[in-house]
């Protein structure tokens, strides 16, 4: 087990670990490493890319290519709470468009943006798989179903007060 440390100003420094024991794992370690970096910092800082590049012996440019290919990875920090709106079919036919409108009105931001106070980021996700509760959104790890504009506003209020 190798423990990696990435020094980073201001933000809390956490160690992220990855099993690099076998050569085979080493070969496929890039994505798990990027995921751990993102878990630690909330995004993938530039420094982390260079650091990981040294470990896995893959050029930083190629790592950048991998990062931008997958929608999970971010190169910019996110807000404290991440709202993910489900864009699945069931949600779509049950009115996810208006869910997005309500959220945009409430937060004053569009998709893939973060509020000025850094409290909320708004994202969309292909399908959360809770189709029977459509329309659905997720705030952090919590799923909210059968959404109405009232429910959305209530949920956002809860998080706003829980600063």
């Amino acid at each position: 087990m190798t423990v990696l440390k990435i020094p980073e100003k201001k933000r809390e420094v956490k160690n992220f670990k990855i099993d690099l024991l076998t050569k085979k794992d080493h070969k496929g370690a890039l994505i798990p490493l990027l995921q751990s970096a993102q878990d630690s910092y909330g995004y993938i800082p530039e420094k982390a890319i260079y650091y990981i590049s040294e470990i896995v012996k893959i050029p930083a440019a190629r790592i950048y290519g991998v990062i931008t290919f997958y929608s999970q990875f971010r190169l910019k920090p996110l807000g404290k709470n991440v709202i993910r709106i489900c864009e699945g079919t069931a949600c779509y036919v049950n009115g996810s468009k208006s869910v997005l409108e309500v959220l945009q009105d409430e937060l004053g931001i569009g998709l893939d943006e973060t509020t000025d106070d850094g409290l909320f980021s708004l994202q969309s996700v292909a399908c959360l798989g809770c189709c029977s509760l459509a329309p659905v959104m997720m705030i952090n790890d919590e799923t909210y179903g059968n959404l109405t504009s009232k429910k959305i506003k209530k949920a956002i209020k809860e998080y706003s007060f829980a600063k």
Binding site: G88, T89, G129, C131
Partner: peptide, 11 residues
Amino acid sequence: DEGDPGAFMDR
């Protein structure tokens, strides 16, 4: 990697 929107049986 159940990615089809509208499918949730694997989950």
